[in-house]
Design a protein around this nucleic acid. Sequence first.
DNA 1: GCATCGTATCGAACGTTGTTCTATCGTAGC
DNA 2: GCTACGATAGAACAACGTTCGATACGATGC
Lengths: 233, 233
Amino acid sequence: MAPQQDRPRGGRRRASHSMESVLTEAVALLDEAGEPALTFRALAQRLGGGVASIYWYVASKDELLDRATDHVIGAALADIEALPSHDDPIDDLRAMAVSLFDAIMERPWLGAYFMRNTDVQGNALRLYEKLGQQTLRLDLTARQRFHAVSAVVGVVVGSAIDLGQEPPQEVLDGAVGRDEFLGRYAQAWRELDPADFPFVHEIVDEFDGHDDIEQFRSALELTLAGLRLQAGA
Amino acid sequence: MAPQQDRPRGGRRRASHSMESVLTEAVALLDEAGEPALTFRALAQRLGGGVASIYWYVASKDELLDRATDHVIGAALADIEALPSHDDPIDDLRAMAVSLFDAIMERPWLGAYFMRNTDVQGNALRLYEKLGQQTLRLDLTARQRFHAVSAVVGVVVGSAIDLGQEPPQEVLDGAVGRDEFLGRYAQAWRELDPADFPFVHEIVDEFDGHDDIEQFRSALELTLAGLRLQAGA
DNA sequence: GCATCGTATCGAACGTTGTTCTATCGTAGC
DNA sequence: GCTACGATAGAACAACGTTCGATACGATGC
């Protein structure tokens, strides 16, 4: 038997990364199975390199998540900047909010990390700026503008987190459809005492098989209606 | 030298827990330093018992988090149910939303776990019911009522997550005050190009030293105004 | 009194994670 | 050819969630 070689004859290739490739693969892992799937070991394997190499690009997992978040916010921002402009600034605000909501819905993990990342040089600031520029076209005070933008972002991210949470394993597996999943809750609610839960009984049919996007749209319309009222338009 | 005894003379007392004590201590740990502080080992030490004992009460950390969340939502619900009633259902909705917001602000970790816990037998359902009952007093369709409640909850939780995120370590330590912390961002923003960031410059003075609660209140008012408009009152 | 059974507890161990340490490779500049 | 430095990597560490097997405690049946 030939003696084992410490190094294979061909010599194992050293991997060569880049900030771009690290973030791209990190996002890919997050997209596939959420935050628990993003481990340094899984990421290193994807990159074909060692675990410690990643630490040359980021100082910690927190920073990796921050940079990955900013990375995809950049893409969402590009979508928003490509949007056509309307006469009515509130129509623009709505279009931007919907676009942002769609981006977060495609990446359920994004919502949770969206907020804690208001870094000054980040894309989040540019996003705020883009939304805020629409409020400059409305007859509002500076304070009202400040509050309006955070209200719109709050509705988007609040809804996205609420609606985009990972469904239980059985739905992800495809073993149980989303409608059936909702239906179970609906059924349980129908069996509650109507005297104790009049509201739940009132809306259970609406809940059963409801559309997430419509729910968000509705919340957004309430905020925009309030804003329009405030602007006196 | 006396021979070592395997068991100390007095016999080490076995700890005796209860679901209540486990949840209470778990919440105490969460309150002190957020989710990372809640480890099974730290919790066991608090309870004066072993690590594995906790698994008799909960099957996993996820379940522990869920039960702890439901535990404090129960307290928040009690506060809300103790609220005096107004003639105007929207005033009631506002009071409830503010009360809920306050409860979440006192526990920054709560916001993140609030959503993923719409268990049927949970306090979250009772909370939805309580909010929803106010919409029954408004002239709305069932679908509008359903959307109204999720909009209000979305504003509350969205704002709470946004505003309640743990500030960086230096602020927690008290080394840097909150105002100074905000001021740094404000200063950095003031140095941006006004041509590229007109909105940021417009609101930077509002942001500097702003009050979180007022920001939430403002977002809530927009939604409630939209709701009032929808109800035609 | 004694065996029995289900409840409740505990220490030790396992596998995985983020992170650090130390050593090494490869290339640009001299 | 040598050096300096940017970049990579394997091995080790501490901490975490979780599991396992053993064991104490109290009530129950005889």
